[in-house]
């Protein structure tokens, strides 16, 4: 398979999404609200890490890319780097991202290209991630007053990071903006069934939240990378 620079760019972006979200979910281990969620969140984190390793390897050496790039060289969406927050924030982030990733991988799996193989396998994993997020959105939205309020806040807080998902991505032979109406409809349907209003805020606009694809990230991302990269960087050239 010949991989072009274009493919590298896309592989890096999608690989960084999976890598960074996997890391954020990994932060839950040992802290989850119920034992079943230790298993479920760990499972999702592992799936994503597996995807990240394949994608990053398409773009270069997985460990060099994960551990030796500076923050500005990461191409992940700002959505996935957002700190876990409470469980509602994690679920809102999962709902928005897994719905997007499922649509994206389903499309990539259906056309010939460098991502078809990975996407065909990953789309099955992501279907489970989306289902997990949907079930929890329903439980939290339609659970207690407190859970409803927390879920409402989380969905609103993360809403402005969702526009970025549909911006053009160099190296992907598909128009991501075509996924947007399907994504909106899908998310709207889950939120409505959960008794939650679709957030009203802007998803793009004067101050455009989400420039992760261009290497602009949010404050907490630097600290996340500092933690993730510290040990690797402390032993240059060592193998593990």
């Amino acid at each position: 398979m010949t991989t072009t620079t274009h493919t590298h760019t896309a592989a890096l972006a999608l690989g960084d999404d999976a890598l960074v979200l996997s890391h954020r979910l990994g932060e839950w281990m040992g802290h989850a609200p119920v034992l079943e969620e230790e298993v479920a969140l760990g499972n999702i984190a592992l799936d994503l890490l597996g995807q990240a390793r394949i994608l990053l390897s398409m773009a270069g050496d997985e460990d060099e890319l994960a551990y030796l790039r500076e923050e500005r060289a990461f191409r992940n969406l700002q959505l996935v780097e957002q700190p876990g927050g409470d469980f509602a924030h994690t679920i809102a982030r999962q709902l928005y991202f897994s719905t997007y990733q499922h649509l994206l991988y389903a499309r990539l799996a259906s056309v010939e290209g460098p991502f078809a193989g990975l996407a065909a396998k990953a789309v099955k994993e992501v279907a489970y991630h989306r289902d997990h997020a949907e079930q929890w959105t329903l439980r939290l939205g339609d659970g207690t007053e407190e859970s409803h309020e927390r879920m409402r806040r989380a969905c609103t807080a993360l809403w402005r990071f969702t526009g970025e998902m549909f911006a053009p991505l160099d190296g992907l032979d598909l128009d991501l903006s075509e996924l947007e109406p399907v994504w909106l409809e899908s998310v709207r349907s889950v939120l409505e069934r959960a008794g939650l209003a679709v957030p009203e805020g802007s998803r793009t606009g004067a101050w455009r939240a989400g420039a992760g694809r261009e290497g602009l990230h949010t404050e907490s991302f630097g600290r996340m990378l500092a933690e993730m990269q510290h040990l690797h960087r402390s032993h240059p050239g060592a193998s593990w």
Partner: peptide
């Protein structure tokens, strides 16, 4: 889990996450 976020390679990170997840499963 104290080391998941600092695992020094992606392969080690995957192994460690799988292990900690197994422990949750054993608890279950």
């Amino acid at each position: 889990a104290n080391w998941i976020t600092r695992a020094p390679s992606l392969r080690r990170k995957a192994i460690l996450m799988a292990k900690v997840q197994d422990e949750a499963g054993h608890g279950l």
